[in-house]
């Protein structure tokens, strides 16, 4: 398993639209990816899970990838989250 901790820079936090796109991306990967905060950990393929984290701008998220091409999966999700601008 590989992980990386990042800070959410999206000005409006993790809202429904970017979360939906993130879920689509995660579903297309060949391994499991989870997002975790200090409080809990959820599957990146779960819209409800991601929204329930209540991620605001500035929140710390630990992204972990397990199975499949772990490094590539981790990079894909981390890059996607960093690129959310709305």
């Amino acid at each position: 398993m590989v992980s990386k901790t990042i800070v959410l820079t999206a000005p409006n936090g993790m809202h429904a639209r970017p979360a939906g796109e993130l879920v689509k991306l995660a579903k297309g990967l060949d391994g499991k990816v989870t997002l975790a905060t200090a409080v809990k950990s959820v599957s990146a393929a779960s819209m409800l899970g991601i929204l329930s984290l209540g991620l605001k701008s500035g929140a710390e998220i630990t992204v972990s990838a397990e199975g499949g091409s772990e490094e590539a999966n981790l990079a894909a999700i981390v890059d996607f989250i960093a690129a959310i601008t709305e």
């Binding site: 429904a16 639209r17 979360a19 939906g20 879920v23 689509k24 959820v42 599957s43 393929a45 779960s46 819209m47 409800l48 899970g49 329930s52």
Partner: peptide, 16 residues
Amino acid sequence: SEIFAAHLEIVDDPML
């Protein structure tokens, strides 16, 4: 409808 596009993700969600 964008509202329903988001709903589609929720109805497919394993958590639900």
